[in-house]
Design a protein around this nucleic acid. Structure first.
Lengths: 153, 153
DNA sequence: CAAAATCCGATCCCGTTGGTAGGATATGGC
DNA sequence: GCCATATCCTACCAACGGGATCGGATTTTG
């Protein structure tokens, strides 16, 4: 599996926030109930989104979370990256020091690293698909079903 | 990490075979030495490639492996799939029974599965990048360095 | 027969993942 | 002021899968 449940839960959480009015805090409990997810675990997930500056929070009674920016300006690339960390197809792409993503393979026997060529392409494919999707699109997608009848054609 | 070392090792193995003359068996030990990989583990990796019909084998002394088809006709999509199994961005995409790849999420609260939309895009990006790359391209890439001087600009 | 290989299954170590537990801190309403 | 609500933080744990090793069975060449 490519992404862990952190990504799944986190994206759902963002969509849920995108469906609410801006600036108005939504409690994690409300989201956990709506999506049927474990509250304590969601806390860890949302913490990543907060540290990445994608959501803001208010503590105390009637507190909660809301989107830091309009959903139209949030690309899913940022969201997934905040949840999963660097999106690298292979170990050698992650440089511990620089957090830069590149292949650190020694050119074996003087040859070029063939796998690098492949993984670079794959990574490009992934990042491009994420960058070209905004949170607003996902929110809009769910709205289409809000008034639809139960039976889906 | 998106792919495990099975993919890394397996792709290298395929490239190594692609560099050899067709039909002529190359022993795993030779490949393990050339790429500095654990022989016993490579056995498991190559078994997947064999079962997928991508390589053929001959047992006994002077036996080994070779490509079942010319490298030009092998898309990396097949290779990676054989090594890693179904390429699904998320758990819900794998149907145990059918081995078909699709999202099995219940439409929550009558809504469309928003994450499905996203994961589908990502999967498309990955598969497309793999399908448009042939083993021959990777082999060619390594050849470019065969005669190059040690110092790479 | 012996060496060189492919084949096959069982086992093991270990890091990650998903999840829980418990509490500290902040805020609003009474 | 107090209590309920809610975020925040850290530690902990069980289960799982990945990477790898081991031992041996089988096949083929010389």
């Amino acid at each position: 599996m490519i992404f862990s449940s952190k990504a799944e839960y986190g994206v759902r959480l963002m969509v849920e926030l995108g469906r609410q009015a801006a600036e108005q805090p939504t409690s994690l409990k409300a989201i956990a109930d709506a999506e049927n997810l474990p509250l304590a675990y969601l806390e860890q997930v949302v913490a990543r989104l907060r540290k990445a500056g994608l959501v803001m929070s208010a503590r105390g009674a009637h507190g909660g979370y809301w989107l830091a920016r309009p959903a139209e300006e949030i690309s899913m690339d940022e969201v997934v990256q905040a949840l999963e960390g660097q999106i690298a197809p292979m170990e050698c792409f992650v440089h511990e020091h620089t957090e830069r993503v590149l292949c650190s393979h020694e050119p074996d026997a003087g040859r070029g690293c063939a796998t690098k060529l492949l993984w670079t392409k794959v990574q490009g494919g992934i990042v491009r698909s994420l960058q070209t999707t905004t949170l607003a699109e996902l929110v809009e997608f769910t709205r289409r079903f809000d008034r639809a009848p139960a039976g889906v054609a």
